[in-house]
Simulated scan of single mutants.
Amino acid sequence: MLQRPLENEYPEYYVPYVNLVSDGDLLSNLQENLDATIALFEGISEEDGHFRYSTSKWSIKEVLVHMADTERIMAYRLLRIGRGDQTPLAGFNENDYINDSQFDQLPIKNIIEDFAAVRKATITLIQNMPEEAWLKKGFANAKEITTRAIAFIIAGHTIHHCNIINERYLPALK
């Protein structure tokens, strides 16, 4: 079972994400989170997918696109660092990714399927990562990070955004 990373294994700004991940088997957590995320977003209509609880905030569909994009990037980082690649990895601006996503042309159903495919690939990547890879260190966005920290950040990032959907978006739609 993959152990929770120590706080010195990742930048401080990831602490809230890692803290959201419950103790126990990370792979089970990722699968349960996938199921819960699919159920959450399948309950949102196409029209409501365009809803923003504030003009400066992303729409529900944009949040889901962001979740998939970020997981792709983080899984790539996990792969590179886990395989011992010491090449520093660039950061990314999530707003640029949203601006160029053309999310509004995609049905929410397609975005859900995309997220599910990314999560399934993340799960198999983690399942097949050798034990010795988990403590490997690399640099992403000019900050040192371990492979296992990235795995927990992936899980926590999704929980974070699902919580925001439940706490800020859905109550405003009622």
Rank of each mutant, 00 (worst) to 15 (best):
E32H: 08
A75V: 03
I153K: 01
L40C: 15
H50T: 14
K57T: 12
Y14S: 00
E12G: 01
K109F: 14
Y14E: 01
N110A: 13
I73G: 01
E62H: 09
L30I: 10
N19I: 00
R83I: 03
H161M: 08
S22V: 12
G43Y: 08
L6W: 03
Y169L: 11
H157A: 09
A155Y: 00
N166S: 14
I165M: 12
I38E: 13
T55Q: 10
I159P: 03
I73L: 06
A68M: 06
V63T: 05
S45I: 09
I126R: 02
S56V: 15
S101R: 11
N163K: 15
S54F: 11
I112N: 04
A151E: 01
N99Y: 14
D96P: 05
E167P: 02
A90C: 13
T55C: 06
N93D: 15
V65H: 14
G156A: 07
I81W: 01
D96V: 13
E144V: 06
F92M: 12
R168M: 15
G156W: 00
R72Y: 04
D114P: 11
N29E: 14
A133R: 04
K61L: 13
T55G: 12
T37I: 08
E12Q: 06
G24Y: 09
L26E: 05
I165L: 07
E47F: 06
N19H: 10
R119Q: 09
D100M: 13
R148M: 00
E46Y: 07
F103I: 09
L170N: 04
E47C: 07
I153G: 00
I73Q: 02
G84D: 07
Y169D: 11
L26R: 05
Y10S: 00
M67Q: 07
N8I: 00
A117V: 09
D35V: 12
I123K: 12
A149W: 00
A172N: 15
R4A: 04
L64R: 05
V21M: 07
P16G: 14
A149G: 03
S56I: 12
F115H: 09
G84V: 06
A90G: 12
I60N: 03
E7W: 01
D35E: 15
W58Q: 12
R52W: 08
A68C: 14
Q3G: 02
I145E: 00
D100H: 08
M1S: 14
A39L: 13
D25Y: 08
L34E: 12
V18K: 00
G138E: 01
A39S: 09
V63P: 02
L125C: 10
I145F: 01
P107R: 14
A133T: 03
T55M: 14
L64G: 03
D85C: 11
S45G: 10
Y97S: 08
Q86M: 13
D104C: 08
D104R: 09
D69Q: 09
A117F: 13
A133P: 04
T122G: 03
S101E: 08
P16A: 08
S22H: 15
A151Y: 03
R77W: 00
E9D: 03
I165A: 04
I38P: 02
Q127V: 03
N93G: 06
I154E: 01
I38Y: 07
R4M: 02
